[in-house]
Design a protein around this nucleic acid. Structure first.
Lengths: 210, 210
DNA sequence: TAAGAAATTATTCAAGCGTATAATAGGTCA
DNA sequence: TGACCTATTATACGCTTGAATAATTTCTTA
């Protein structure tokens, strides 16, 4: 019996593919469905290779969680432009594809459910959460300052907690039951609610500039 | 070798104990740790008994999810008193023990992560979500009406979506990182934010009546 | 108190798990 | 081209899994 032929991939590429395959498995079959063998099949390699790149299954899961958090937060944390644009984009990005969809949620929930079991995952989570909230807090500070409003640390902290909660909650609702809401309904609700919380109106979006 | 002695329990009691044991296992070790054998150990019986009461492992998980959702929503949905009191209690209940703690979150996330895999779980979730949001929507309608404000269906729907999101998000934050917040800080943020969203102040809590 | 129903334990099974190790093939460079 | 390194495949091991079935004990009731 001939062995199957294969191609030697650069380490970075192989690791990336294996992590991607892991995420696919989790999203499709849940954490329990993400077995070493399933991941290998999905990645088009044999199971042994996974242990060649990752010390254990726990390690590949931890790496995978870092990727998931990164994708959930990186775009929103890299908004550019004036304070108002940055704030608006931050909101919109978090409530539309590719951040808001059922795959993201299913990956996120899978890992969150293990945060209380695996301290390493808990650390990864904590870091992501604080970095996200800090980004939001400084967006708010800039925006309030620009509009000449109270931008004290206490107010920014409180607003960031509330708005972060609102965004998380609407993200959840959208991911879990997107079809219950109209096209961009959640984004509009978020923008209106946040305007109300801040006591400021954002200027209407210029449709021609999109 | 003598067999272990045992006691025959009424069906309802046994089923309850088995589900309780299942939840303990999930909270402690995650979904993967909730094996038939672990559940049996936790319940103080042998593994075979589980199959005597539940058709399969999937079935016991579904029953367990119903219980979890019930506990997360039943108290809030049963508030009594005038509209304002009911609304306030609804908010407070959802952000304090026993609804808000890390065990609840870990159970909730475990099941949510399977919603996209198991259609039966998805149905259970959908039902719980809609019932919760409807409860909130009618609380809002009553409160707005009492205060003589616009209580149109559209406004109530929008407000319910936003406030539901806010509560979910703050619940999440509290469960995942309760120690980052001061005593009852999240409750206060929620109450203040919701007052702002509604454009109405709730009357201060009468401390002596508690 | 004896018999019968069924709740519970005990045992077994095949399949799948994560991991370890040995064999082999692909790519690089002298 | 040929030798070498190592990425990759292949195979095996011991355990655990959910499930099925057989054996036994408890409890009710006549």
């Amino acid at each position: 019996m001939a062995r199957r032929t294969f191609h030697r991939a650069p380490e970075a590429e192989r690791r990336h593919d294996l992590i991607e395959a892991t995420l696919d498995c989790i999203a499709e079959y849940g954490l329990e469905g993400a077995t070493v063998r399933q991941i290998a099949i999905k990645a088009g390699v044999t199971a042994g290779l996974i242990r060649h790149y990752f010390q254990s299954k726990e390690h590949i899961l931890q790496e995978a969680y870092r990727i998931v958090i990164g994708r959930l937060t990186e775009k929103a944390e890299r908004v550019t432009g004036d304070p108002e644009t940055r704030l608006r984009d931050f909101i919109v990005i978090n409530l539309t594809e590719p951040v808001a969809n059922s795959r993201s949620l299913s990956l996120w929930a899978s890992f969150i459910s293990r945060v209380s079991v695996d301290p390493e995952l808990a650390a990864i989570h904590r870091e992501g959460y604080l970095s996200f909230r800090n980004a939001l807090e400084s967006l708010l500070a800039d925006f309030l300052t620009e509009r000449g409003q109270d931008a004290s640390p206490e107010r920014c902290r409180t607003l960031a907690i509330a708005i972060n909660g609102l965004l998380d909650g609407l993200w959840l609702e959208g991911c879990l039951a997107g079809e219950l809401f109209g096209e961009s309904e959640l984004v509009e609700i978020a923008l209106n609610s946040i305007e109300t919380l801040l006591g400021l109106r954002l200027r209407p979006v210029d449709a021609t500039s999109a």
